[in-house]
Design a binder for these strands. Structure first.
Lengths: 209, 209
DNA sequence: CTCTGTGAAAGGTTTCACAGCC
DNA sequence: GGCTGTGAAACCTTTCACAGAG
């Protein structure tokens, strides 16, 4: 299989969600227009995106909901569940552990790291997580076979922690700290920059009058 | 001024942050390469982006840190602070209110809305916010002159709430619910889709081995 | 000589439109 | 007839490379 365009990759999770929805209301087959409407795009886009994964549809009919979902799941590497850790267990970190969308999708929080490991207390709702000192970050990440880190530390220490996370053998970071991380090319970073998002919205408000 | 490319808009907040950093370490002047290194991009990109805002640099010298920052701030509509509300005051919503990055940048949380307004209790840290019932959402949004909404409701009700938010005169929504919102064209939505982000990271892990 | 501003080239993404299969 | 899969066209974004200002 050829390499997928970056933007196609970003849309696959959306399609997957649409397919679950479709399945939950009893649809067995769906066409590109149907997916497009649920996903907020257009039919040509959906067909082009899916065509990168192979010839998955049936002409004159559409796509089989179940098998398409399974195929996308495979491409996204979701067949097996992923081991996730949080680095920086402040308010945001604690909220994210509880976020229901994650373990629904097969992401397992195996630990949280903080300079103050007493932050265990603050976890309500019956869920619990192994909170560890940041001191042994690298070795603990290796021991726990962590694959993905959510980085929610203060900005000042984010770059330093990111390097330690990479040293712990982690190749995927979801970065909530408002800093551009510099890391080896074999570590994939996705920034989630909330203040920037608000500023972009502010821009659009300004050009609306 | 011509219209800015969407991607340029998304980078302006990053440049702004870099300029604050530069100023905080005493730099008065910075060149495109300097900005690029802080922002994780390249000098040509920076010059092209900034050129859309006008001729702000001095050839042979670079950009004045203070006046460039001010100019970008103006373009982003940050001269005046923006009134923000949260709809859906669960764990994520509460974490976001406390997120320090927001009011640092002139975003004022004026209210939070929830089906259960008893959720006032759960706000620690000396900060307080006006928590209101969702019943009068539209009229309250109008009264409070809310400009931006952070939508952190459960997925099932997100579309419905988004329509009511739009009816409340709000033209900008930061959507944390894992649903594609359908709204009038004069409402700008930025999705923050955390589960999808993790799935994209999972994809990259799968193609690394 | 240095560094910006910018046309032009290269590269990537979306949309079109239709051939081909069911 | 209906819908997918896909080259080609249109569009958008990034990178190049250099003229020109200081």
């Amino acid at each position: 299989m050829d390499r997928l365009p970056e933007q196609t990759i970003a849309r696959l999770p959306v399609y997957l969600r649409c397919l679950s929805q479709a399945r939950s209301i009893g649809m067995r087959v769906i066409n590109s227009l149907g997916i497009a409407q649920m996903a907020g795009t257009n039919a040509a886009q959906v067909r082009k995106d899916l065509s990168y994964l192979g010839e998955l549809g049936t002409r004159g009919v559409g796509y089989d909901v179940g098998s398409l979902a399974e195929h996308i799941s495979d491409v996204l590497g979701l067949e097996t569940s992923r081991r996730v850790a949080i680095v920086g267990f402040g308010r945001l970190g604690r909220a994210l552990v509880m976020y229901p969308g994650f373990d629904e999708h097969g992401f397992d929080f195996v630990a949280a790291f903080d300079a103050d490991p007493a932050r265990v207390r603050a976890l309500p709702g019956g869920r619990s997580i192994d909170v560890r000192s940041i001191d042994n970050l690298e070795t603990d990440l290796v021991k726990l076979r962590v694959e993905i880190v959510l980085l929610t530390t203060p900005a000042q220490v984010a770059q330093e922690m990111a390097l330690r996370v990479a040293a712990g053998g982690v190749h995927a970071i979801l970065n909530f700290a408002p800093v551009v991380l510099e890391l080896p090319a074999d570590v994939k970073v996705r920034p989630v920059d909330l203040a920037s998002e608000l500023q972009v919205l502010s821009f659009h408000l300004a050009r609306m009058t």
